[in-house]
Simulated assay, not measured.
Amino acid sequence: MARMWQLWQQGSWFAVGLMVAVFVACSSPAITEIRIGAIAPLTGDVATTSGQPTLDGITLAIQQVNAQGGIPIDGTLYPITLVTADDQDNPNQAVAAANRLINQENIIALVGVPLSRIATPVASVAEQAQVPMVSSKSTNLDTTAGKLYSFRATFTDTFQGQVLATFAAHELNLQRAAILYDVASNYNQDLAKIFTAAFTARGGKIVASESYVTGENNFQAQLKTIRAADPEVLFLPNYPAEVILQAQQARELGIEAVLIGGDAWSGLAEVSEPSLAGAYYTSDWVLDLGTPASQAFVAAYQAEYQRLPTSAAALGYDAVQLVIEAIRAADSLDPVKIRDRLAAIQYVGVTGTIKFSRTGDPIKGAAIIRIDGGDRVFDRLVTPD
């Protein structure tokens, strides 16, 4: 420092600048790891159906990469460190977790955040910080709308709402539909709205549309109104715990309409509920997809966790693999470069081929699943036009 002061007094600006640059360079921490953050609901009603499977899929993918030495950056392999946070299915908790992971844990990307009601506010945090985020399972349009750094590994509500409307009207030949949905949740509300528009555009009629607020468990009043409208199909764009109660209460009231639902029903994969027999729902992935990537994932997941994976696990796996492939392509830990590579990616994953076109919404299809007792039967795959 004395020498630097002497040079400063002598007016040797170049020498001082050089010494400052060397000082800063020497004090900058060297890369030792690649830090990726994961946010998921690990406690609460959706922990077992959504949060833990999502984290299990993410963890498996990272374990596989680290077993090969990590990701190469400028010719050197670096391991991935996964930093996790429990959002407790609470938007405020999720936003706090995202800020902590970005500002204190120094992550370079965020993955997980499967629920739309959580992913949307977290995406705003990631956007402001210019940190790429890949939601595994959020289908709500607001998660990616108007954002450069927000991506998803699944289809959108617009696509699945249209798929369900077409399936009900044209394949099942049902013309009278009723809807029961949570008015306090963007996912439920938007999917109900999209289905309504698409179903009526295909010649169907919405004979009843009833709502409730998150936390309700008695749907008798709404279902009695629906029963009086005599629908042929009852759309329940809701989460598993509520769907089970709604299906049970609907059947108890004598409602015989075919039940249909969105991708949130994938959380019912291991549930055997008689009132859901013959129901249909959309899904991002099915066990018997049969592709090499899917088969390899199922085998690895079973070996690691001693159980079969759900679509939540498969999408968690694909979400972090998208980030991993983008880092490889960028050959850099610069979040901006990773984001640019994500936008141009074409990844053949467990849940199918994922590629983005000008937005964070991938071009990919949706499977329709039929519930047959305790089994889930693949009915068909619907791809974008």
Rank of each mutant, 00 (worst) to 15 (best):
D56I: 04
I39G: 00
L55S: 07
V65E: 12
V24F: 14
P29K: 13
A61R: 04
T59W: 03
L60W: 03
T54F: 01
L55Q: 14
Q52E: 14
L18T: 13
V46F: 09
T43W: 01
G37V: 03
V22K: 10
N66V: 10
G51N: 01
E33N: 12
M19I: 10
T59L: 01
A21N: 08
A40G: 06
A38R: 00
I31W: 11
F23G: 11
T59N: 06
A38W: 01
S50R: 06
E33Y: 06
A15R: 13
I31V: 14
Q52R: 14
V22E: 15
A38K: 00
I39C: 02
S28M: 15
T32H: 14
I34V: 10
Q52Y: 10
E33G: 11
G57I: 01
V20K: 03
P53C: 05
E33L: 08
M19N: 04
V65G: 10
T59I: 00
G17R: 09
L55I: 12
V24P: 08
Q63G: 15
Q64M: 07
I58W: 04
T48L: 12
Q63E: 15
G37S: 06
V46H: 08
V24M: 12
S28K: 14
T59Y: 00
C26G: 15
G17Q: 09
T32M: 08
A15V: 08
V16F: 05
I31M: 14
T43C: 01
G44W: 00
V65F: 13
V65Q: 11
I58N: 02
V22M: 11
M19L: 11
G44Q: 00
A21Y: 08
L18V: 08
T54V: 04
A25D: 07
Q64V: 06
S27T: 14
A15Y: 10
L60K: 01
A25C: 11
V46N: 07
V24W: 15
L18Q: 10
G57V: 02
A30M: 14
T54R: 02
R35W: 05
A40Q: 04
Q63C: 07
Q52V: 15
G17H: 08
A21T: 12
V24Y: 15
V22S: 11
V65S: 10
N66P: 09
M19Y: 04
P53L: 07
T54W: 04
I31N: 09
E33S: 14
Q52M: 10
I36Q: 09
G51C: 00
V65A: 12
I62S: 07
S27M: 12
S27G: 11
A30F: 14
V22I: 13
V16P: 08
S28D: 09
I39S: 00
A47C: 05
L55G: 03
L60M: 05
T48M: 14
S28R: 12
A21K: 02
I34A: 03
T32F: 09
A61K: 07
